[in-house]
């Protein structure tokens, strides 16, 4: 009895194994083909309302700047996190405070609702390094948010950094015979650098906090998809 039972399933063993083998090979081919096909499919472009996405992102040269604590700040510091960069100066009454209050509002929303806050930093780069030394910038940016970064440094290096990001600025002649009473006109765009330290997107003025936040999240998702 027991022998018959043992022998019976052994008889059709070969055709079954062949079927499984064929099925297996077919599945494997299908899987590989599907994999190749989908990996070559373009990732859907993010729908952006305020930002201009740069593809490919633009590499920048070593900025070689100084942060608000007097520490060197360059490509190494830019890597690993997203950075919003704005160019301005502490003697700027209108556009710069308005933009920094927008940064403050965006940072607050990021902190409340998203873990993205820990991967994002906000920078004010001074276009007036003569008056904006590290200690001045520190007190200035930290009024808006203790995590904000202020950058200053050598005039030429700030100029090169601004040009690399498509920003222009012009220092005006002093008013009322007071050498300290001068303004610096500058682009009011907000630049977004990706975690490789490359220019990934540009937000043109006027900056709208809700649109900036929404587009930023779309860009981060898109960036993850293509990497």
């Amino acid at each position: 009895m027991s022998q018959q039972h043992n022998q019976q399933p052994q008889k059709p063993k070969t055709p079954f194994t062949r079927t499984y083998l064929i099925l297996g090979i077919f599945s494997l081919i299908l899987g590989v083909a599907l994999g190749i096909y989908t990996s070559n499919l373009p990732v859907a472009k993010p729908q952006l309302s305020a930002a201009t996405l740069l593809e490919p992102p633009i590499s920048i040269e070593e900025p070689g700047l100084i942060d608000h604590n007097g520490q060197p700040f360059g490509l190494q510091e830019l890597r690993g996190k997203w950075h919003f960069v704005f160019f301005g100066y502490t003697h700027c009454p209108d556009v710069c405070p308005t933009t920094l209050f927008i940064f403050k509002s965006v940072a607050k929303q990021l902190k409340e609702n998203h873990d993205l806050y820990n991967k994002t930093r906000f920078i004010l780069t001074s276009v007036d390094p003569e008056r904006d030394k590290s200690n001045v910038l520190k007190q200035y940016v930290q009024f808006y948010n203790p995590d904000f970064i202020g950058l200053t440094g050598d005039n030429k290096k700030i100029y090169n950094f601004s040009r690399a990001l498509g920003v222009i600025y012009v220092r005006n002649k002093p008013l009322d015979n007071d050498p300290n009473n001068y303004g610096v006109d500058h682009s009011a765009a907000v630049l977004l650098l990706n975690p490789e330290g490359k220019l990934q997107a540009v937000f043109s003025a006027p900056i709208k906090p809700d649109a900036l936040l929404k587009d930023f999240q779309s860009i981060v998702t898109y960036y993850k998809d293509i990497h």
Partner: peptide, 19 residues
Amino acid sequence: KQVEFHQTFTEGGMMRMRK
């Protein structure tokens, strides 16, 4: 020390201020 009136306007890709 001083109070002035200014106008911010966009020109040549920059936000400029005019007293």
